[in-house]
Amino acid sequence: MEQATVKWFNAEKGFGFIERENGDDVFVHFSAIQGDGFKSLDEGQAVTFDVEEGQRGPQAANVQKA
């Protein structure tokens, strides 16, 4: 698992990007966020996640709020 920071997340559209420590951004979809209830992330929030290869490149999976 990697630890990184949420760059931005649009709760209405259900997706955003996580900024990795190496500077690369990773796409995150609300369905990858672990937990119950409304799944959203806040800008600047610390998260841990795995990286999977998606249809359009790397994307976050198993996202957990740190």
Rank of each mutant, 00 (worst) to 15 (best):
F17C: 08
P58V: 10
Q64D: 05
S40T: 14
F17V: 08
T5S: 08
F30M: 08
F49C: 07
Q55G: 10
V28P: 05
G35W: 09
D25P: 08
Q3H: 14
I18G: 00
E2R: 10
A11L: 09
E53W: 15
R20S: 05
T48C: 12
A60I: 02
F30Y: 13
E53D: 11
G44D: 04
H29K: 02
E2M: 13
K13Y: 11
T5L: 11
K65P: 11
E53V: 13
E21Q: 12
R20K: 08
D24Y: 09
G23M: 09
L41D: 00
Q45C: 09
E53A: 10
V28W: 05
V51E: 06
V6N: 03
Q55K: 14
D50Y: 15
V63M: 00
N10E: 06
D36M: 11
F17W: 07
V51D: 02
E52F: 13
G23A: 09
Q55L: 14
D36I: 12
S40G: 08
Q3Y: 14
D24E: 13
F17E: 01
I33A: 03
D36K: 12
A32V: 07
Q3D: 06
E21I: 12
G23Y: 07
G44V: 02
D25S: 10
F17D: 00
Q64W: 08
A61S: 10
K7E: 05
K13S: 07
T5W: 14
V6L: 01
V63I: 06
K65R: 11
G54E: 03
V28S: 00
A66H: 12
Q34M: 13
A60G: 04
T5D: 05
V26F: 05
E2Y: 15
G35R: 00
Q59L: 06
E19S: 14
D24I: 13
W8F: 07
V28E: 03
Q64L: 09
F30P: 05
F9K: 02
A4C: 08
S31E: 05
Q59K: 09
P58Q: 09
A61K: 13
G35M: 12
M1A: 14
H29E: 04
N10I: 03
K13E: 05
A4M: 04
V51A: 05
A60T: 00
V6F: 00
Q59H: 09
F9M: 03
E2N: 12
G57F: 04
Q45P: 01
F17Y: 06
T48E: 07
D25G: 06
S40R: 10
E2G: 10
E21L: 12
V26E: 00
E2W: 13
R20I: 08
N10P: 05
E52Q: 11
F15H: 04
E19A: 14
Q55Y: 14
G37T: 06
A66Y: 11
V6W: 00
F49S: 03
E12P: 01
F17H: 01
W8H: 02
T5G: 03
Q59G: 04
A32Y: 05
A32N: 07
F17M: 08
N22Y: 11
G57S: 06
F30R: 09
K65Q: 09
A11Q: 11
Q64T: 11
Q3I: 14
G57V: 04
A4D: 01
Q45Y: 05
W8M: 02
Q55C: 15
L41T: 02
F9L: 04
V47A: 03
N62S: 06
D36L: 11
A32E: 06
F9S: 03
T5Q: 08
A61D: 03
E21M: 12
F9C: 06
A61Q: 10
G16P: 00
A61M: 11
Q55H: 13
I33M: 04
G14S: 01
E52Y: 13
V63P: 02
N22R: 09
V47S: 02
F17R: 00
K65W: 08
D42C: 15
V51L: 12
V63E: 01
R56S: 09
E52W: 10
A11C: 15
H29N: 04
F15L: 04
E12W: 11
A61C: 11
A46Y: 13
N22G: 11
A46T: 13
K65F: 10
Q45E: 14
L41C: 05
G44H: 08
D36P: 12
A60N: 00
A66W: 09
D42F: 15
A11I: 12
V63K: 01
Q34I: 15
V47T: 02
M1Y: 12
M1F: 12
I18M: 04
G57C: 05
Q34K: 11
D36R: 10
K7L: 03
F49Q: 02
Q45V: 08
G35D: 08
F15V: 05
G44T: 02
A46V: 15
R56K: 12
Q59N: 04
